[in-house]
Structure formats: structure tokens, C-alpha cells
Design a protein around this nucleic acid. Sequence first.
DNA 1: ATGAAAGCGCTAACAA
DNA 2: TTGTTAGCGCTTTCAT
Lengths: 342, 342
Amino acid sequence: MVDRVTSLEVARRAGVSQSAVSRAYTPGASVSAKTAAKVKSAAEELGYRPNVLARAMVSGKSRIIGLVVAYLENYFYPEALEKLSNALQERGYHVLIFMASQTAGNINTVLEEILDYQVDGIVMASVALTSEVGSRCQAAGVPVVLFNRSQDMDDISSVTSDNVQGGRKVAELLTGLGHKRIGYIAGWEGASTQRDREAGFLAGLKDAGHTLFAREVGDFHAERTEKATLSMFDKTPEDRPDAVFVANDHMAFVVMDVLRHGLGLRVPEDVSVVGFDDVPPAAWRSYDLTTVRQRANAMVEQTVETILNHIENPNKRKPKKIQIDSPLVIRSSTRQQGKQER
Amino acid sequence: MVDRVTSLEVARRAGVSQSAVSRAYTPGASVSAKTAAKVKSAAEELGYRPNVLARAMVSGKSRIIGLVVAYLENYFYPEALEKLSNALQERGYHVLIFMASQTAGNINTVLEEILDYQVDGIVMASVALTSEVGSRCQAAGVPVVLFNRSQDMDDISSVTSDNVQGGRKVAELLTGLGHKRIGYIAGWEGASTQRDREAGFLAGLKDAGHTLFAREVGDFHAERTEKATLSMFDKTPEDRPDAVFVANDHMAFVVMDVLRHGLGLRVPEDVSVVGFDDVPPAAWRSYDLTTVRQRANAMVEQTVETILNHIENPNKRKPKKIQIDSPLVIRSSTRQQGKQER
DNA sequence: ATGAAAGCGCTAACAA
DNA sequence: TTGTTAGCGCTTTCAT
């Protein structure tokens, strides 16, 4: 193990003080161009790079953002993670990952571990935050941004799609297409995304003079969604929906598969299916799913801006609830109803 | 911003020295049970937790593993990442993520950034390492493990599936099924996974007395795979393959979609398709793809063990090339050829 | 077993 | 602009 080069060694080689070296690496510090050049070339020769951890200790800024993720099975998250990490990297921050899954202990344990690393901020993706956890971070002076989740009561910033509006758009689409018996398959009912999507959907149906024809819960879970689909659709044509809105794409794929391969129904001829997220497989031709797009880029952008803003202005803690507009993406899993519907 | 509690404050409260506090948090240090108890309870009252960064500075061990990932679009990687992060978390390590994608600069830049964080080790997933980069880490005394990639010449540890064996199994399956015109769609030819899978496949064909009927390159890329599929299959029945091995699942999905929805061919009736990876969508009923499973759990386990072993025994640098056995998973995208083949 | 003291590599006053 | 000095919060000798 070769020891790393320190700023002191560079200083000696460049014939300057150790602080001069430090300043040469501090943007906006007062160093003459000449000194900076001497330092840089000495550093170059020695292969010196500042030790981020040492810098973090004294400055109190680690330039590490803790990211808590519950699961990566929903392909919206890997996409978001990739973009988030890239965006942060460009701003000189890096992402320390914490899985908040079953095996890895509960959210509080994870939070303590994060705080141990003196992170500058925390992004929580698809994690429901208890107010206790929130104030724990508050107390530690570490800003938190919720990604793709929102809480009611709290004073914590969050970035989500406009899920209510998205749900409403689906209702408008489906009623506009002439569907008469419209069903909904819900996600996990503890998730704000699920609640908002359903609320918007129901409001939209109501505004169009419709009521929900059938409802089942899929819990964002494949097997439960399969069951839900069967109990909703394993019926005579008049007793089953002619269209269904599913709370996210992954469940919608299961629904389509059960419909086609389990029940021998056609999509969209017998049933129109709409999802939410627009994960990449939604565009694959086997599904070609009509869905509401969560604009990952915009969401990530806002998340980064929000968290960095909190970090740079620790005093004015103005929590922001940002909602990103989410457009409908119409593909071939939905279609206009013909006259036979009467 | 509330200041964090320091060991000194705990020490005062517990009526012991600051070193005693440190020892109470150092497994195997010599502290009496009584002192440790006093410390723990004082710490509890104050909400004290050791500062990982400060500890890292003096001990030289950050308990951070740098993970370099090129892209998360192949769903094998999010899965692996999740498992890796969990496994490391259980051992008291955490993962600092670095995207080595186009936007985020080249691999060398990324590597410098990683090293700045004094990581204890580096895992590179699907990143081709230049020998220069390798020795850079060597010089810094930071162990590296390649995940799902292997290099020839180097002295760097790697964990992969047994890709050669996997390719061979596919050849045995397809020839055993009675296929006569067998094609191959290659991935990016710079990837060791691609090369090994193809080599094993060709060897297997040869052993069965077959030769490759057609070959195209898909580059692990959707559009190029679409083109490749068309030029391989947009032909009369006698001129096109009756089976195709595709270098990974994601390309295989494209192939199936083009075959079915673009060319109106049936899978497996007209063409058998085999992939590699066994990513979750391979099991979705719309694809139900026969494939070679990369055992993510086993691969991650070996990766963790290897890197921690290198970290704990910095002297004996015995690079290991680990190959995980990869079983064939037979689903419905392949089937026995009937007599009409003659 | 315990405390005192040194110092990890750096930044941030403070002087000059 | 530059060098000197004092720590950041911890681990680790070295005494005791």
C-alpha cells in the first residue's frame, strides 16, 4: 500500500507553504497565478490530489449525498438513480447508497448510518418517512428531499409528478374513448403516489359523469396483481370492465399478460389498459402501453436543485412541494370504442 | 444546524477520558465493562454516534466501497447493485456510486474522484478497464474487483458467470432440439461477456457437428438489434434461421418483438429464441424467454468476499478470476422441431 | 484498564 | 498575497 501524497509534500516541492497548496485547490481563494502554477505542477509531478475526507472534516461539508432507496424492482428507480447520480456528479457531489429493504434493517437504522457519514443532504426515493425520522434529520441539520413520495403534515421538501392531474388525464382519455365500464387496480395504499393517482382518476370520472365500475388492489406487487386481475376480469363480458387504469406500469404489464395469456382476452380490442410511469418496457412492442409519463429528467433536476439549495442556504428552510407535470403517452393498449358498445 | 455531539462531550458526561469513549466503540479494545456501560449510557442520553469520517482519517479505513457502473439500462445491473449494496451494508461497508456514462466524463476522471474519497476498494461493473487505470489503483493501494467483466492480461480480480459454458449450453440445447439453421446475434464486441458467450456457443455447435448459419451484431443496443434482426430474418423461410441465440436478454426481447410484430413470425413455432442473463422481464409471459441465468446472488457474494478479502489482507494480492456456474432456464421461446424440418 | 498527548490531512482565521 | 497557527473528531501509542 503506497501512501498517498499529502499537501505538505507538494508544498515542500513547490517551495511554498502548505496553506498555499490548500488555496490552490480552493476555488476563489486568494492565490497569485504564479503560486498556483507552481503548486499545480508540483502536484502533477507527485500525483497529488486533495483528500476529500480531510477536507470534509474541517469544512463540515462532505459533498456526499445520502440516497435511500427501498427497491429497484420498479424500473423507474434505476433510471432515476442513474440520472440523479450523474446530475450530482456534475455539481461535484457524490451519492452514497443505502438500501432500505427488508434485509437491511429499518429506516431508522439506515438513517443513523447515513448521518454517521456526515452527508450534506439526503434524498429518499419511494420511502415513506415518519415524522420522527424527519425531525431527526432536522435536528442533525441535514436537509432531506423526498423523491416520488410526499407527506401531508410535514415540513419536508418533496418532488413528485403531478399524480392527481395524471390520474385525471387517464379518466378523461378513457371516458373520451367511449368506455362504459372502467376499472381501477390500486397500488399499495400507503403510498402517496397511489392515493393521488386514484383521487385524480375518480375525480376525472366523476366530472365526466362516470362512476368506477370495479376496483381491486394490486399493491405494486406481481402476484397480488395477478389475483386482482383475475377477480376483476374472469367474468362474462357484461360483468367485466372494458377498460382498466392500473396504478403503475409494472402492474399494468402483469394485467396485460393475464388478460392475454391467462384469460384469452385481447388488448385493446376487449380491454383498454393504461399504466403510470412510462418505464422503458412500456414502449416495448409486446406491451406498447398507454401510460402517464413520469418525467424522470425533470424530477431529478428539481430534486438536485432543491437539495443543493437547502445545503447552500441552511438558514431559510422553506420546504417546497414540487409537482412535475406528467403527460399522457398514448400507445396501442387503448382504443376508441366502436358502435357495438351501444 | 445543530452541532453533532462529540466523543469529548460524552467523555465529560460519563466522567471518563475521551479515549475511553473511543475504546467503547472499538470492538476488541481494552475497556472494562463498567466504563463501557457508563460511556454507552452517556452517549445514549446525548445522542452520540461516532463520526465515520474522522475515524476514517486516522485509521485510514473509510468503510466506503466505490462502485463504478456504466449504465443501468440492462436490468441485470440494478438487481446486482441492490444485492451488492445490501451485502456490503451487512458487513458495515457502504457504496459510493459513480456513473461512468457518457455525460459524466471518462473512466479515468471518475477514478480520480473515487480515489479522492479514500475508498477501501472499488467494484467496477461492466466497465472495461485499461491496464493503465488498473495500475493506477494498484499504486494507490486500492483493491479492485471487476464485476461481470474480465480482462486477459491483467492481475485484477474479477467475478463473472461462466459465459463460455453458458454459450455452450445454448448450442447443446438448440442442436438437441433439432434446429438446423442456427443464428447468433452478437453484443458489443469489445465486451468480454460477448466474446466468451460466442466462443462457447460456436464451440458447442462445432462439437455437435453444426456450423453457424447466420451472424449479426446488435451491440447490446436496441435499434442496432432491430436492424440486425431484420437483416437476419427478412427472408424466405429456407434462407432464415430457425433458431437464434442472442447475446443478452434485452436484445432478445427486441428480437422477439421484431419477429412477431415486425415480420409476423411466431416464436417458438417459426423461430426459437434464446437469451442470456435471465433478467426479470424474461419471465414475463409476453416473452417467457429461454435463457441462461446469471446468478446475481452468487456473483455478488463472491464479489463481496473477494474485495473484503483484498482489503483485509493488503499484502497477499492474489488476483482471482471467479466464474459462476450459469444454468439454462428453459421457457417457451424454444421448442422441439417437428418432422416438417425433414 | 485508563488517561494524556500526538497527529491523520486538511481549511480557516490571523498576522505579516 | 502569503505563511503561521489552531483545530475538525477521532484512533493510537505511551505512560501510568
